[in-house]
């Protein structure tokens, strides 16, 4: 996963997740409350520069991660371009929506700014650090256990899927749409059997170590956490001020 690669190898890796979370939260709020498309686009640009220049996330990787979301945004915006209306006889017809350009500009700029805030967080912070942050924020243990287990097992399942698909493809399992659907059904069924097998094995392993409750791990420590959080707070306030100024 590209996001994982960037999250473990950027300049802000050792910065406290609380600081990065605070900055991202301010970015999201500034995006949602930005008064004009130009302001939202400015916030998006600033957040992108923070990730690329501040955290040294490679620009090519940043764009590769953002591209699917941008494509999705383009498609979503397209749906706002047209309007469906009925005439006097009840016939439906498609037409250009009034003020479509202004609406699309506002929604797209807001989405871009919010996406830049999200990417700024996920491209600089590995998921285990975010889970540790959620634990500090007193998210229920059951939910955190689900996250820890999900994170650990999803790579196991990804490998299983890759190997099974390779084996199926080698036997022409994906040569026609009909065969593809059948192969996919067998693949998903095989995986769903593994859910019970792997869960049973994990439970046995935990019981063998007297594990009967929540899954606890050492909380990672970050130097200069207070300073980083204060700086992130200031930068976040700046984003909010930029967003509020144009209202």
């Amino acid at each position: 996963m590209l996001i994982e690669r960037a999250a473990y190898g950027n300049r802000w890796r050792s910065v406290s997740p609380a600081a990065k979370g605070l900055f991202a939260l301010a970015g999201l709020l500034a995006a949602l409350f930005s008064g004009s498309p130009a302001t939202a686009a400015t916030i998006a640009g600033l957040l992108m520069l923070a990730s690329v220049l501040g955290a040294a996330v490679p620009l090519a990787l940043y764009l590769r991660v953002a591209t699917p979301a941008l494509g999705f945004l383009a498609l979503s915006s397209l749906s706002l371009l047209f309007s469906l209306s009925a005439d006097a006889t009840g016939n439906l017809s498609w037409q250009m929506a009034p003020n479509a350009a202004a609406n699309i500009a506002a929604v797209s700029a807001r989405s871009l700014a919010a996406l830049a805030a999200l990417l700024g967080l996920v491209l600089t912070t590995p998921l285990p650090d975010l889970i540790a942050l959620l634990r500090r924020l007193r998210v229920p243990d059951v939910l955190l256990d689900l996250m820890v287990l999900c994170y650990r097992m999803l790579f196991v399942f990804s490998t299983a899927i890759e190997e099974t698909r390779t084996a199926q493809a080698a036997r022409l399992g994906y040569s026609t749409p009909r065969r593809s659907l059948n192969s996919l059904g067998l693949l998903a069924a095989g995986l769903s059997v593994q859910v019970w097998q792997r869960a049973r094995a994990l439970h046995l392993a935990a019981e063998a170590r007297c594990g009967s409750g929540t899954l606890r791990f050492l909380t990672p420590q970050f130097q200069h956490a207070g300073r980083d959080t204060a700086l992130a707070g200031l930068a976040g306030c700046l984003l909010l001020v930029i967003g509020a100024c144009a209202r």
Binding site: M147, L149, R152, V156, L184, L191, V195, L202
Partner: peptide, 22 residues
Amino acid sequence: EQRMLLGVAAAFSFTLSALKLP
């Protein structure tokens, strides 16, 4: 034992949603 099952089920759902469906 359901604790592990649900965590593994979440991983299963996540990886399943990444498959391409014709």
